[in-house]
Design a protein around this nucleic acid. Structure first.
Lengths: 258, 258
DNA sequence: CGAAATTTTGAGTTCACTCAAGGATGGTGG
DNA sequence: CCACCATCCTTGAGTGAACTCAAAATTTCG
């Protein structure tokens, strides 16, 4: 609704920053992206944005909030495929393939910018450089899925969770959401379990151990990284697969915790 | 070397068929693709085509053979991310992002068509419809990775392997490589283990069980599907995530075994 | 303040792992 | 053509990481 004002500009900033990480946009392209969203949408926690099998007519850019992609299996099992944070386009699959192979749901209250497929279509036709940037976005998603496969397939529960925390720390830092070695973590232990292919009871025990080992601290709905070096080593985390441009900033995870 | 002859035409056919599954190409676009490969390359078994971290200057289209994408982890661990069959483009990531996040290696003797990035660049600029088709290819890869995450994260070893065999059966059928309910399977049990996040000993036991239960048969380097219905049910296999157009054909997996 | 969701702990179980070794298979060279 | 070596498959035995079930403690939220 309140498109094309100052607020809207801030809205799409995190996406633009992220796209620039691999693509470096021109002024015109930047303008185009800012104008792409026709309205915003506020969604409560634990709501689905799209379902597996849907043929949506619009894409969603996350302005604020945390979401997850997931698949449901028989007997109530669930696999979370990835977490989505501000700046992410969470359902480009629906645009490119016309059908969603997975669902996307909110974990927190979320603000989404809505971009009609028609708009995306026009943009990709008129601005090849932007089309390439969006293609890159989807391949980075794929790269993250591949790293998750290695994580779940070949690492212990302890390593897996360490790796997940590293990934989220690195990604949140890239969009300026890490302050004094800490970041918001509105994800329940049961959700971590569904993401890492573990039981929620075991996740609880592993988190306890990570705390006991002085790697992290959990405070209300946030993670404080107490030893970024060791957390990375534990999870065998190398950020290359995220294709981020920027390194750890001033407020970053490499810094001593306040 | 021997580009632009009849043989070459056959070479890129399986890709074209596959792209048409979601994109349906025009005559001109088809011609463009056929001409894209400048030479072919023969590679022996267990050779790497690209390594994680490489910045390759060309893409490879699989004409014949089976390859796998994989990641190496410390202490000799390996995670296989996916298997690649004729018609697949195995390293578009290198084109889109400029750097490989994973390696690609052959399992068998392999014939590859080599397409310089320059060529791909021209094609995507001049033929938006083809660019979209390639984008779709990479998203289907991502969709497969997501399904693998659910497979490894939430299914038992027995289900996982059943699911893998279903996937390979369905994909090979789509490129005409299933005959009388059987397909080539030049993959060792250790490789299945690295793909499914299991030990090779356990893979051996599970395959034994699948045979004992009358779901499959293993003959020299091939899989015979004895009960496609039950194999799918066991693996909770639903082919939607592959985005294939065609259903089971005459020689297909739905048919009784000779 | 009470209900619901989430986290935590205990106890017993199991699926898949590791280690070890014996067959089978296939390719290579004498 | 056969002997040899390497790879792959198979089986046994014991172990362990992660699971399930159950219930209590804590936090969150209407």
């Amino acid at each position: 609704m309140e498109a094309r004002d100052g607020r809207h500009c801030a809205m799409t900033n995190s996406l633009i920053e992220k796209l620039e990480g691999v693509a470096s946009l021109s002024g015109v392209e930047r303008r185009v992206l800012v104008d792409a969203a026709v309205r915003t949408r506020d969604v409560g926690p634990d709501q689905d944005v799209v379902h597996e099998g849907d043929r949506p007519g619009e894409c969603h850019l996350i302005v604020d909030g945390v979401l997850c992609r997931y698949k449901l299996l028989p007997e109530g099992r669930r696999q979370i495929i990835g977490f989505q944070i501000p700046g992410d386009l969470c359902d480009l699959t629906g645009f490119v393939l016309g059908r969603m192979d997975h669902s996307v749901g909110t974990l927190t209250h979320t603000k989404l910018a809505v971009i009609p497929h028609k708009r995306v279509q026009e943009i990709t036709e008129q601005y090849p450089h932007l089309a390439r940037a969006l293609w890159q976005e989807t391949i980075i998603d794929a790269s993250i899925s591949r790293e998750w496969l290695a994580n779940i397939g070949r690492r212990s529960a302890y390593q897996r969770i360490a790796h997940l925390l590293c990934e989220m720390g690195a990604r949140l830092e890239a969009v300026g959401r890490v302050k004094e070695g800490a970041f918001e973590w509105p994800v329940t232990q049961a959700e971590v379990a569904d993401a890492m292919g573990l039981s929620h009871v075991h996740v609880n025990r592993v988190l306890k151990q990570l705390r006991a080992d002085g790697l992290i601290e959990l405070r209300e709905r946030a993670v404080v990284v107490r030893d970024w070096e060791r957390l990375q080593r534990t999870g065998e985390f190398r950020p290359d697969y995220l294709f981020l441009r920027s390194k750890a900033g001033d407020q970053g995870l490499g810094q001593p915790v306040a």
